[in-house]
Design a protein around this nucleic acid. Sequence first.
DNA 1: GATGAATGAGATTTCATTCAT
DNA 2: AATGAATGAAATCTCATTCAT
Lengths: 214, 214, 214, 214
Amino acid sequence: MQEQNFRELYLQTLEKMSDLTERQKKVLQAALELFAAQGFEATTSAQIAEKAGVSVGSVYHHFPNKQAILIAVLTPVFRGTLESVADEFMTNTFSRGFVTLDEFITNVVRDRMTYIHDNATELKLMFGQLLTNVQFVEQIKAFFGKQLELFVLPTIERFKKEGKIADLPNEIILQLTLGTIVAYFGKLILNIESLPIEQEINIISTLLIKALRP
Amino acid sequence: MQEQNFRELYLQTLEKMSDLTERQKKVLQAALELFAAQGFEATTSAQIAEKAGVSVGSVYHHFPNKQAILIAVLTPVFRGTLESVADEFMTNTFSRGFVTLDEFITNVVRDRMTYIHDNATELKLMFGQLLTNVQFVEQIKAFFGKQLELFVLPTIERFKKEGKIADLPNEIILQLTLGTIVAYFGKLILNIESLPIEQEINIISTLLIKALRP
Amino acid sequence: MQEQNFRELYLQTLEKMSDLTERQKKVLQAALELFAAQGFEATTSAQIAEKAGVSVGSVYHHFPNKQAILIAVLTPVFRGTLESVADEFMTNTFSRGFVTLDEFITNVVRDRMTYIHDNATELKLMFGQLLTNVQFVEQIKAFFGKQLELFVLPTIERFKKEGKIADLPNEIILQLTLGTIVAYFGKLILNIESLPIEQEINIISTLLIKALRP
Amino acid sequence: MQEQNFRELYLQTLEKMSDLTERQKKVLQAALELFAAQGFEATTSAQIAEKAGVSVGSVYHHFPNKQAILIAVLTPVFRGTLESVADEFMTNTFSRGFVTLDEFITNVVRDRMTYIHDNATELKLMFGQLLTNVQFVEQIKAFFGKQLELFVLPTIERFKKEGKIADLPNEIILQLTLGTIVAYFGKLILNIESLPIEQEINIISTLLIKALRP
DNA sequence: GATGAATGAGATTTCATTCAT
DNA sequence: AATGAATGAAATCTCATTCAT
């Protein structure tokens, strides 16, 4: 991966992402599934073209190279995973003016676990990239850090002040909460049977609340 | 990846793993680092040879193909990750006949977090394979499942009977515990600052104990 | 380059060259500049279309293929370079009934150096083709040979008979004269500073006259 | 042609040029002939490999890309064309302490025309590159300029001081001399019959001497 | 006529693997 | 055993040309 071009390609790609043709969407969908299943390097242009039902030349007519396809695929995942934190937190969780820790935790758990459940393929690709793509790690960290600063940490601080949550370092609270939630993704990947998602959400929420209560 | 040969190659490789020459160790170390950093597919034989300070021909003299190198690298990781559960659990934890949940949890957390801390590179490679290597997933599941059946679950059951732990489904207990522990690996990967490991172990243990107490 | 079609394409192209649309002229101008700067092979249809400000499809609407564009571009160059010899020689030089070698040489030098000066791009393309395009070489030779036979050599012979020029083989006279003139093109290509063209013409003419005098 | 890398590739290539294997020489010889006959862009790796009697992979084992082959081919041409000016001028011409303009001109003409006669293929490639390769033009100019400054111009100046040569601008003297000599190359390219080379040298020398005498 | 998306043939390049030394 | 040159199969990418709109 030519890492030096990542940012440049990213910006170029973003421009074109607003109005994708039907064909481009098919290519991206095919690429997403293949990248997630086999990894980026192990996926060939020919496989993408075939799965998308177009010619290889057509793939390259719309995207300058394979890396651009990766970026075009990652961008919505990236946004969906992280920007939605802001949107959904604000609209679903924070904006409702939660008073109890219970409601807060339950909502966060429901929100994120549902997201994981609905977007397992996208997340698989994202995790794969986190392991080997240094540039991507930086982008994720920058974006994720900002979201935390803006939305999550202030809420946790508020709970601390109100004495509704144990006085733990924020990083530990996040490690416990997110770790437990992300472990749900691990179960999906490993194809381990789970309880029905609604039940999972309830039990996990209860556990986390118990752990975090002062 | 020629998946049909995985098991066969694995067995062949195991045989030779007992007495590795100096040269072979250098190759495996180089391969480990490159696979972890770039992924298996993105790593070329030439890179491995160069990093190991040997010729390409030499690499192929000791290993029949690139996949065999992967297996040879993965095997100790695999064992180190999972077999050690047995060893260490039995020698350090279980065999001592713990009576309190506190001691049990604290020991598990210390054991696994220390392992993660000391073997981040190996684990990175393992996670990468978990995402794309179906055969590997099966092996991991089989092995991990057996270890759980043999050592971990009986202990948890014992605690349940003794009323020392909340009456939760085992999978939830594991999700909470392992998720929180594995999140420590996430921090390492993302290069996020942590507390000193001793402190992390203490706080995390305390939190998990609090969550799991009846 | 499909050489077998060159002549056929050439004849087809000639027919259409008399009445070029505005669009076709833009395409040919763009192609001329790109072919001269980068060479024929290194220039893509897309580049021509873009530089001409038209679509790729439009280029192919007017010309059957890339080679036809080359021919359409070369033809006027070809004619401009060689047919003009006839025109200009007859109207400017020969028809005036020169009596002195001085006037003859000075006029030839002025005529050709001015042409080179005004058509450097076209000539660059022509020289490029002379190096690699066998068909083109044949055409140039045939055409050039005819012009020489008809206009230039008779004049030289006349001068010889009149004792106004040294008794040298014609090919040597041409080598000296044309070589020195074409070297002016070399200076342009290499971006080497020259004297003002009027001065160049005078000095070069003087030198050639001195060399060719009996 | 990725022009930004030309210099870098050039330097890398030079290092390896000192000890070429038999196989590399065959590849370079094949490439030289094909590039000269068809041009760089029109020559495929497969053609080079076939003509050299090796596999395509083998070509790329020794040269990182097609451009590196071009550079490796051009370098000796470049050197042969220009460095030899220094060597041969010094050993054959200048060092003999010529006293007459006649001997000087005759030697230069013989030296360069013989070189052209013996290296027409190499020169064809070089001229082709001069037309389209900006980087190469710069290298040629720099090198050629230096050779002129060091060897040729001082000699011309000496002749001027001694009153053995007409008082003309140096650039004009070069244009006349080199133009006439290079025109010999033109004849070869156009496949125009010449006199026997010894005779050509004599007549051309005589003409140039006549033109340059005070 | 005009457009530019689509394509397929082919070019460049990569790389795991083999093999002569 | 060790080396690294050699190879062929396959991957990425390019581009002249076609064609539906």
